[in-house]
Nucleic acid binder design. Structure first.
Lengths: 227, 227
DNA sequence: GCCCGTACTATTGTATACAATTATACGGGT
DNA sequence: ACCCGTATAATTGTATACAATAGTACGGGC
């Protein structure tokens, strides 16, 4: 099997570098690699059927995203997330999500508003059925919608960067049956504040949403991560 | 002249990739390249006496830092910063710098406190002499000290990322003779709040410091960038 | 037995060769 | 003159070869 065969295993839409980057990112977030585990260029490349070149380039990006740490002439290691990191992230997000909700109130498009409403009601349905996976997925998506709606590439960028860490933490255990529905109720309130154009309320609710998410996580031993 | 000669032109302390990354970053921030200018791998490599490999890796990092945008199969372009971007940055920073000042108050080390004091008094001296370049340099450093003192790698990372954009904007014209000394006065107040352990005050002052910096910039046609 | 140096191996760092893609220039057809 | 397809050149994308560095195992000296 040469490299060109492997190239056709999956969608060709993206360059190899992007494919490697995306896969590694997903694998790290999904907890496939343990914290502080060493990533070897050759091993990754062989597994994905590509040479070291795109792997190395993907590494540089992962490093800047904070998912791995590269020690020169030594290796690439999956970054560990401490409890303090998680706490810091939620506090930082509590500020920025508030700002984001404010800006979203001012700039959200009709299409985005509709997707947000749909998201909340769909989540309500899955909450009633106890579909925790779908609930978690919709939870993530709610935040992404708001990030996109705030009309600031910069804020969106930083919030997405922070949000992804949450995904890693959530992975550490199964979703909590209580927080999911509660989180979605808060989303609903934020959504309605945005819809009615009440930026002050939206900001306050989004701010509190993060604090609640963090408090819940602490109560459950820092394992849950809704919000 | 082959590549190995060039390797010894400057300090060998860092890998070529890091050297290329640092130089390109500095060049972009210094305004050497115009906005939307295309960066060619080969040209950069030849100029620095390295092959395309480290240049490409540096590109990936610069892209993630937001300094360039890479269009697949096409090229790398210096990102443009709009006036709205600048405004967004200052608002985001006004929140995060406040939080940073709070945390710095709680965690600053003695060495950091001393450097901060030294920074303020040295800046006072240069302000009196009208040394605008040194003033600008000390201004940047003051913020870096605070970022490091806040004891949060995450907050530090995001603030440094935001701060670097300011450096690009400042470049667009010469430093303003008025804002520099005013900015340092505000630094002095922040420094003293931190020193006396008044976290609430430090947060508020740092928050206001950003707002003042932005207002001043607007007054001067979005050209100045102290803070 | 322990220390230390040396050879060997594994891995990363860089350069270069080649493939694929995009941009450009040219020339014929209308 | 203009449109459009083809050839050509320029540039990026990827693979591979080679260099440098770091880690490891072995063996001699004490």
């Amino acid at each position: 099997m040469n490299h060109y065969d492997a190239k056709h295993d999956t969608a060709d839409k993206y360059s190899l570098r992007v494919r490697v980057f995306s896969k590694l990112r997903a694998d790290i977030l999904s907890g496939r690699y343990a914290e502080n585990e060493e990533l070897k260029e050759m091993a990754i490349g062989e597994e994905m059927g590509v040479s070291r070149t795109p792997v190395r380039e993907a590494f540089r990006q992962l490093e800047l995203e904070g998912l791995i740490q590269i020690i020169p002439n030594k290796g690439a290691y999956v970054t560990g997330i401490t409890e303090k990191d998680v706490k810091d992230i939620y506090i930082i997000r509590s500020l920025l999500e508030g700002l984001c909700a404010r800006w979203a109130t001012e700039h959200i498009t009709q299409a985005q508003m509709e997707e947000m409403e749909e998201n909340v009601y769909l989540a309500e349905f899955h909450a009633g059925k106890g579909h925790l996976d779908q609930l978690a997925e919709l939870d993530n998506r709610f935040h992404d919608i708001m990030y996109e709606a705030c009309n600031s590439k910069l804020l969106e960028h930083h919030l997405k960067d922070l949000h992804q860490y949450v995904l890693r933490v959530r992975r550490k255990t199964l979703a909590n049956a209580n927080r999911g529905p509660k989180s979605n109720e808060e989303h609903k309130n934020i959504m309605e504040a945005i819809k009615t154009g009440n930026a002050d309320l939206a900001e306050e609710l989004a701010h509190q949403h993060m604090i609640n998410a963090y408090d819940n996580m602490v109560e459950n031993g820092l394992h849950e991560a809704y919000g």
